[in-house]
């Protein structure tokens, strides 16, 4: 489903290279984890996939279901099925959470040539999904992420994901700032979305989230490259030995 080939990315201002030849293929139905030390380029990869400004792709390609993602605007990528659960969800004062979600859902549907979801249907959909993630009515009424705790923000990201039903779900450190209970809620939300037609890229610094969201493949990223790929046992190796061993292995 997702094919990243030899992706090189640098910052638009200045020549600092950040991604230095990333190769990654994720099939529909699979969950891939990307682990790596801070500053290795994980968030950058997620932003480049979702189309954020400020990065220049100097080499390589990214396709989703054969379509060239890099040529699309962020909203077109979303309509094509890309979803990024942000490491730092943005607060948007003045835009109600519900209004925002309905606007987003209907914009995606319009882009795909589907009818808009009625207010009543949307409300029903929202209520079901919100319940699963224990997102209360006051969180839905408040402006997007404003006054939300760290955990509430992350749950709100997963709620959006559940409603938008993307093909490719990218989770950037969704576990950071979550206590165990919140992490279980989030993991349940993600697991409920696991489906033969959907792929996941779970970016995390720690192994702990992967106890709840079991990955099929684990990649280790360091200094803008994927230096190791393996099964779930690779995450456990990181858990026990840290990144140190892997990094020196790579250097040597």
């Amino acid at each position: 489903m997702l094919d990243i080939k030899n992706l090189h990315v640098r910052l638009e201002d200045g020549d600092k290279p950040i991604l230095k030849g990333v190769n990654l293929s994720v099939n529909a139905g699979e969950v891939h984890a990307i682990m790596g030390p801070n500053g290795s380029g994980k968030s950058t990869a997620s932003y480049v996939l979702s189309g954020r400004d400020g990065y220049t792709v100097t080499e390589g390609s990214v396709t989703l279901g054969g379509e060239n993602l890099l040529e699309m605007e962020p909203d077109e990528r979303a309509a094509a099925g890309v979803f990024l659960a942000f490491q730092y969800p943005v607060e948007i004062p003045g835009v109600g959470n519900m209004t925002f979600l309905r606007t987003a859902l209907n914009a995606q549907r319009r882009a795909r040539g589907q009818d808009a979801v009625s207010a009543a249907d949307f409300l029903r959909l929202m209520r079901d999904k919100a319940k699963m993630l224990e997102v209360g009515p006051d969180m839905l009424k408040r402006p997007v992420n404003v006054g939300f705790s760290g955990g509430e923000k992350k749950r709100n990201e997963i709620l959006q994901m559940a409603i938008l039903e993307p093909k490719l779900c990218i989770l950037d450190e969704t576990d950071s700032g979550l206590d165990v209970d919140a992490m279980k809620l989030v993991a349940n939300g993600v697991n409920a979305l696991r489906d033969a037609g959907r792929a996941f890229l779970v970016i995390t610094h720690y192994q702990r989230l992967l106890n709840h969201i079991k990955p099929d493949v684990v990649h280790i990223m360091a200094d803008g490259r994927i230096i190791r790929t393996g099964g779930p046992e690779l995450a456990l190796e990181v858990e026990h030995n840290g990144y140190g061993g892997l990094l020196t292995e790579d250097a040597g």
Partner: peptide, 21 residues
């Protein structure tokens, strides 16, 4: 970018932010 990443076209997202302002 946050709004666009959820599928809202840039011009709509901008208007949404202006109305919020």
């Amino acid at each position: 970018f946050y709004l666009c990443s959820r599928g809202v076209p840039r011009a709509d997202a901008q208007d949404l932010l202006i109305m919020a302002f």
